[in-house]
Amino acid sequence: MNHIPDEMVSLLIESTQQVFETMVCQPLGSKTPIEGNALRPRSNVVGTVAFTGDRCGMVAFYSTTETAARIAGAMLGIPAAEVNGEVADAIGEITNMIAGTLRTRMNDSGSRWAISVPTVTIGSDFYTTYVSDVRRALCPFTMSEGDEVFVELILTENN
């Protein structure tokens, strides 16, 4: 199975860092991306945005509930402890902006996609799997206070 092109992974990392620096006011440090079906991160909040066109697949955002609340609080300008029902909407919007920024950057190099509305799953003890052959690259990031978040790019095999 082919790897995801390095250019796409680099653009995903840059897009994620841009979204966080601008909307969460947090610089994100990136670690080496993990290719393939290695163990997925432990997370309770997963945002996903699907895309279709010249490329088909999905962008997924993973974090713990606590980190998601800190992200939502930073976006809304309130302490994380005061975040109540806003986590799902905030993580959906973060995922939407990451996928949208990646889409725009890929469009600049001639790849045209449409993206879906975001969906967010919140819970515990769940595992995301794919029924068809896909290529996966998982990008780990560290926020300034040590919180880890992960963004995954999934491409269907016909790309």
Binding site: M23, M97, G100, T101, T104
Partner: peptide
């Protein structure tokens, strides 16, 4: 205010009648 920032998107929005355009993420 949108993530749709490809050239074709902006042309479509201008044709629809927007006055101005901001791409998410924004400051």
């Amino acid at each position: 205010v949108t993530t749709n920032a490809a050239k074709d998107d902006i042309v479509e929005a201008l044709k629809a009648g927007i006055s101005s355009y901001i791409v998410k993420p924004f400051t």
